[in-house]
Amino acid sequence: MNRTSDFLDEIIARHMHRDGAADEATAARVLKSLDGPLPRQRHSLFDHWPSLLLTRDFAPAWPRLAALCGVTLIGCMVGFMTPNLSVRKSSAMVIAEVDGSSLVFDSDPITGVRP
C-alpha cells in the first residue's frame, strides 16, 4: 500500500470520530448516574479555619498573633539550641571555678603589688 500522509490523517480522524452516537449514549448514562446524591467534597483544613473563626467572632488579630508567634519561636529556638548553656551548669561553674575571695582580699590582683 503506497498512500500519502494525508490519507493516514484522514483514516485516523475518521476512525476517531466513528462512534459519536455511542459516545453520546454512554455520556447520557454517565450524567444520569451523577443525578443522585454526590459525595462530600474534600476541603483543605487550612482553606477554611480562618473563616470559621471569623463567623464565631474569634478572628485572630493577625499582626499581634504573628508577632507573638514569632517572638515565641525565637525564644524557643534560642533556649533549645544554645549549646552548653544552662542555669544549673553556669551557677555550678561559678561556685566551682571562681575564687571570689582572692578578688576581695587581694589589694591589687593584677600587678601583685602589696603595700
Binding site: 459516545d23 455520556a27 454517565v30 451523577l34 467534597q41 474534600r42 476541603h43 483543605s44
Partner: peptide, 19 residues
C-alpha cells in the same frame, strides 16, 4: 471502561473542586 472512567473523573472533579 470509558463509562466508568468518566464517571470516576466527574466524581473527582466534584470532590476535589475546593482544591
Amino acid at each position: 471502561d470509558a463509562e466508568e472512567v468518566v464517571q470516576e473523573a466527574f466524581l473527582r472533579v466534584w470532590v476535589n473542586a475546593p482544591r
